[in-house]
Design a protein around this nucleic acid. Structure first.
Lengths: 185, 185
DNA sequence: CTGTCAAACCATTTTATCCCACTTTGCACC
DNA sequence: GGTGCAAAGTGGGATAAAATGGTTTGACAG
């Protein structure tokens, strides 16, 4: 499989699961919504202004971007630096003697790039990450709990449609989960 | 299936099932009724004033709007911010390492948009959500337990008529449901 | 020495937000 | 019923902010 090609594998475990609620951007608002921007020939993209205000309100001017696979498709994941750091800390403790975690470490951490937000509100996405996720001209930002994802818009639209279909065809995805637990309080 | 097109599949389980009774707008009144408004070229819609008073009495000036499919038709679902937050919290705990939940996350949460109510009592519905639900000129608001739904009026009328027909053809549809016990006492 | 790439700067276009004004509806009171 | 007032709903334009494109400067590697 060449870089940028669609990947048919399932999802990777979410990095977000490693981020405790306490480390998440505390009470400063959350990243929300899906925003489409364009990427220029140099690899620069504007961060959606609503995402920027979340960052600014916690005094963070720097993101960490790394590769990710979500629902079978390659994309990027971006975290505010402090969130990423707490993530690193956890992984470093976990991976001490467990060889299985080495691939996790290699995949997530080896290419994680530090991306400062410039004066115009943009970041530069390194070429290897751009190629990996197939970023061409139209880019979509989608909100996550403690960070956000960056997709080529075509890929994202496909993933979204697939997700819709999967949920319609398989409502059991919900019923198997105990989402209503606190109803019985 | 392109955006805005009718979807013929069945319903998704209601997001409302994820919201515990305790988190629902406590004793501040409920959203009730069906209200028709118009949407302007910029995507602005007035929130029905009765819905607004429910919001104001609990001090909430912000809604979160996301895509949804109800009875086979695309629409939007809107929640007061605090209700939505409790929902996010649950998902973030659940989604830890279950890849199947990626679809749920991608469909429900990734596009959920923060929509502050402006001075004139309106919200701006982002273009992607407008397209998704086919909002054109006439919009219908229908009440839910802890939030409400937003439809293109044509779609809503169709859904309502279909529901009526289904009940007429099958009057026993509800006979298995226990609607008479008062669980919440 | 040269070529490449990234950072900083600046300029232009596009978009969104706020504000005000108008129309319509509903309600109380005459 | 009618009349007047207040609230709700609607539309558009001005202004600020966001998004994008290009050029120059500087660092580093070949």
């Amino acid at each position: 499989m060449t870089e940028g090609e669609k990947n048919t594998a399932t999802s990777l475990p979410s990095l977000e699961s490693l981020v405790g609620e306490s480390e998440a951007l505390a009470a400063k608002g959350r990243f929300r919504g899906c925003h489409e921007h364009s990427i220029d020939s140099k690899g620069r993209v504007s961060i959606p202004s609503s995402f920027r205000s979340v960052l600014q309100s916690s005094g963070v001017l720097e993101l960490v971007v790394t590769n990710y696979i979500c629902d079978g498709a390659r994309c990027l994941e971006a975290y505010p630096l402090p969130v990423w750091e707490s993530l690193e800390l956890k992984i470093s403790k976990l991976s001490s003697f467990d060889p299985r975690l080495k691939s996790l470490e290699n995949y997530y951490f080896s290419r994680a790039a530090s991306c400062p937000v410039d004066k115009a509100g943009r970041i530069l996405i390194p070429a290897n990450l751009r190629n990996y996720s197939g970023l061409q001209s139209q880019i979509s930002f989608t909100a996550g709990i403690s960070g956000f994802r960056i997709w080529d818009t075509r890929v994202w639209e496909h993933v979204f449609r697939e997700a819709e279909t999967r949920l319609l065809e398989n409502p059991d995805l919900f019923s198997g989960l105990d989402l209503t637990s606190d109803r019985h309080r």
